[in-house]
Nucleic acid binder design. Structure first.
Length: 781
DNA sequence: ATGCCTCGAGTTCA
DNA sequence: CTCGAGGCAT
């Protein structure tokens, strides 16, 4: 970089940092992430160090934070509130420790370590044990008087406990909003139209800045004390840790994660420990803070311009980062759902490189107002999946255009349509769309469906392109040659042909394995088979229910849709979707071919005798969803007519004679006149009779020990996988659910159980550890 | 009609 | 995991 370029860069950095300061402190609307801000400051500091001639007394590196906004009275801090230097790596922490060791000429250093809350730094002034004034940090020397607002925070004592406090005591600490409080607040705000807060930090800052303390009082704010400022007329202990203990004695909240550690190893171990616990903490933190514990040492170390030399903030890798959104593409899913996703310039977030993130649906894109060319903020929240949180509107380049859903499917060109009132847009191409076909096969082969190991999306695509795979039944007639041909094409297409293949050596082991995996999948269960078909609304759980209640593929595949409503948790929508799927000749043909090519269902059994209760004409009439025909009317009809045929043959006046109001009789007659309705009624009645005939006597089925129990699994089990545990519990009659509610019988918690365990404790639901589960399984094996 | 509670579907990276 | 939406009890 030349001298003039350096000067330009320095000016640019100063301008951007000042702008960010203004937004952060005065507007409570940060437009860049903390990590990006830190990076700017560090770059500027480095340049200024390297080019002392370009230093400037007005540079933001010489100030701490921005000037107060002026809406509150100003308060000069008796002792300045300083910020901390940052460390982003173990090396920087080691440098920090080394600097202290060298200056103090001491080997064994004792530090006080504590989490660094993501909130708002404030100072509380107590005189004669009474809270008299509270102020924000402001620029470090002068802050804003927010005493009235701070008084509304219940954990801040108005009067200190005990009587051994100094006459004047300034307590430094952080006002924050706990995550659960933040969530609860926003939930209510969305429901009842209050102010929705962007994140806990902004929530805390904004709440403390209210002109009306009554508004602040509504906000769920908390506080932790972490240090002291001015002290007069009394003395405090000579170590930081003892000072914290004293503050706690006086009734001030101090984080119980604050502790004393020894040397560099102690610091790094603390960092690792808090980092591991981070997601489970009740509040957001962005790092940990280390302070030399003895005050004599602190005094000896002193300060550099804007921070103490005896303390440092060790930051966690950012979980939020800004990056450039290069384009918005769309994906076509198994059901034809067209979902937009963001393609971004690679960025490190929470330790992994993120390049893509889902944008869910068109409404979501519109809500975020995100466009190609935007700078966006990406987050990896508690889980792994990255998410675009926010657009930095201030950094939008000119000439961007709002994104819109393409009118045609990018894969097959069919029209993209949206159902009335629905959120998702779908490709109308159905199975003639190659993308939907590929996804359908991928789903069929997936682990929870037919479990064909080794059949990935890339292979399926290639098989479909070359015409070897038109539908899932073709899987069962693939030959070794088909697979080798497919692989050759795929490698050519992607330019991934291995050198060994070019040299004439064609590996076939993988193909043998795949053929074997396909063959193994021929023996399957009814639940897996039904799930694998990919019927709309039929996921794993509904497929299991269908299998359990009907027990036989031949029965299921010829059942008219109203009969499916006899299964608990299947209503009109789902029943119709199943019926619609089965009504299509093409789908029946696929099932036929699957069976012809060797797929065998191994757990066929008689229908569940509990079905008996709903297998009558009255229930059928309700299930058919005939306009105006309620349960009461259906019962009247069922007792007045011998069977469905009799009902069908009845003239309107007979219907009325059965006790129906004229309006209902007419609606029913009109419905019966439609040919399709009449035949559905007859088909359903026949199916009902057949199903009835197949029902076994209501006998005492071997009820499992967990019959009627709903179990939720969470965390990692060591002795078995989650799926295995799930199967075993279900074999004993339990129902396994994905989330904890008051209906949950008990929760099995493995290692590192998270929110579900917390929820269980909150609801007072029984929790089993792995040992208890194993013991139970062993006992009932 | 309203408010749980579940299920289904789509999704990321190593 | 998170959203949206279906099922069902109230």
């Amino acid at each position: 970089m030349g001298a003039s370029e350096t000067a330009t860069r320095i000016a640019e950095l100063r301008r951007r940092i000042e702008d960010a300061n203004r937004r952060y402190h005065e507007l409570d609307e940060p437009d860049i992430t903390d990590a990006a801000y830190d990076a700017l400051v560090r770059e500027l500091e480095a340049l200024e160090r390297a080019h002392p001639g370009l230093a400037d007394a007005d540079s933001p590196t010489r100030k701490v934070g921005a000037l107060p906004s002026g809406r509150f009275a100003q308060v000069a801090h008796a002792l300045p509130m300083l910020s901390l230097g940052n460390a982003f790596s173990d090396g920087e922490v080691a440098d920090f420790v080394r600097r202290i060791r060298e200056r103090l000429e001491r080997e064994d250093l004792v530090f006080s370590a504590e989490p660094k809350l993501d909130g708002l730094a404030i100072s509380l002034r107590y005189e004669d044990g009474a809270f008299v004034q509270g102020a924000t940090r402001g620029d470090g020397a002068t802050g804003e008087d927010v005493t009235a607002n701070l008084r509304t925070i219940s954990v801040i004592p108005h009067v200190l406990d005990g009587d051994d406090w100094p006459k004047v005591l300034e307590v430094r600490g952080e006002v924050y909003m706990a995550r659960a409080d933040f969530e609860r607040w926003n939930e209510r705000a969305r429901l009842h139209g209050g102010k929705v807060l962007a994140n806990p930090r902004n929530g805390a800052a904004g709440s403390l800045r209210q002109q009306d303390p009554a508004v602040t009082a509504q906000r769920p704010l908390s506080f932790f004390a972490y240090g002291i400022g001015q002290v007069e007329g009394g003395s405090l202990p000579e170590t930081h840790s003892a000072t914290l203990a004293r503050l706690r004695d006086w009734g001030l909240p101090v984080s119980d994660l604050a502790t004393v550690v020894h040397g560099l190893d102690g610091l790094l171990a603390y960092y690792a420990r808090i980092g591991a616990a981070r997601d489970g903490l009740a509040f957001d933190i962005d790092g940990v803070v280390y302070k030399l514990d003895d005050l004599a040492g602190q005094r000896e170390m002193g300060f550099v311009s804007r921070a103490p030399r005896w303390a440092i903030a060790h930051k966690f890798p950012a979980q939020e980062q800004a990056t450039l959104l290069e384009s918005i593409e769309v994906n076509v899913g198994r059901t034809g759902a067209v979902t937009p996703w963001a393609l971004m310039r690679p960025v490190q977030v929470g330790g992994v490189t993120v390049t893509r993130a889902t944008l869910h649906n068109a409404d979501h894109v519109a809500r975020l107002d995100v466009r190609a060319g935007d700078t966006v903020i990406v987050r990896r929240a508690g889980d792994v999946i990255p998410e675009v949180v926010q657009v930095v509107h201030a950094q939008r380049p000119p000439g961007t255009v709002p994104w819109s859903m393409p009118a045609a499917c990018p894969v097959c060109g069919a029209e993209v349509v949206r159902e009335e009132g629905a959120a998702v847009w779908r490709c109308s191409g159905g199975l003639s769309c190659p993308a939907q076909r590929v996804q359908a096969v991928f789903h069929f082969a997936s682990r929870r469906a037919m479990d064909i190991d080794g059949l990935g999306e890339r292979y399926i695509e290639s098989l479909a392109e070359s015409g070897h795979l038109r539908d899932v039944s073709d899987l069962y007639r693939l030959t070794l040659d088909d697979l080798l041909d497919m692989k050759r094409r795929a490698d050519e297409r992607d330019g991934t042909t291995p050198e060994t293949v070019k040299a004439g050596k064609v590996p076939t082991k993988w193909a043998d394995n795949l053929i074997e995996a396909i063959d193994r999948s021929r023996g399957t269960t009814l639940a897996r088979f039904l799930f694998a078909l990919g019927i709309e609304h039929v996921g794993e759980s509904t497929a299991k229910a269908l299998a359990q209640w009907f027990g036989d593929l031949d029965l299921v595949r010829h059942l008219p849709w109203p009969l499916f409503k006899r299964v608990p948790d299947i209503g009109g929508e789902v029943a119709r979707a199943i019926g619609h799927f089965l009504d299509q000749a093409g789908n029946q043909a696929v099932i036929e071919r699957l069976l012809a090519r060797g797929v065998r269902i191994r757990d066929t059994h008689a229908p569940n005798p509990l079905l008996r209760d709903g297998l009558d004409l009255a229930t059928l009439l309700v299930d058919l969803e005939i306009p105006k025909v309620t349960a009461v009317r259906a019962a009247q009809l069922a007792s007045a007519f011998a069977d469905a045929q009799a009902l069908l043959d009845a003239p309107v006046q007979d219907l009325a004679a059965a006790g129906l109001p004229a309006e209902t009789a007419e609606a029913l007659a009109g419905w019966l006149e439609v040919e399709a309705n009449a035949s559905l009624l007859l088909r359903s009645a026949r199916a009902l009779a057949e199903l009835r005939a197949r029902l076994p006597e209501r006998g005492e089925q071997a009820a499992g020990p967990l019959e009627g129990k709903t179990v939720v699994l969470t965390g990692t089990l060591s002795a078995m996988g989650r799926d295995e545990a799930k199967d075993k519990l279900e074999a004993l009659g339990a129902k396994t659910a994905g989330s904890v509610s008051k209906k949950t019988s008990f929760v099995v918690a493995g290692e590192a159980a998270g929110s579900k365990l917390a929820k269980a404790e909150e609801l007072g639901i029984e929790v089993w550890d792995e040992a208890r589960l194993l013991a139970f399984l062993a006992q009932h094996a």
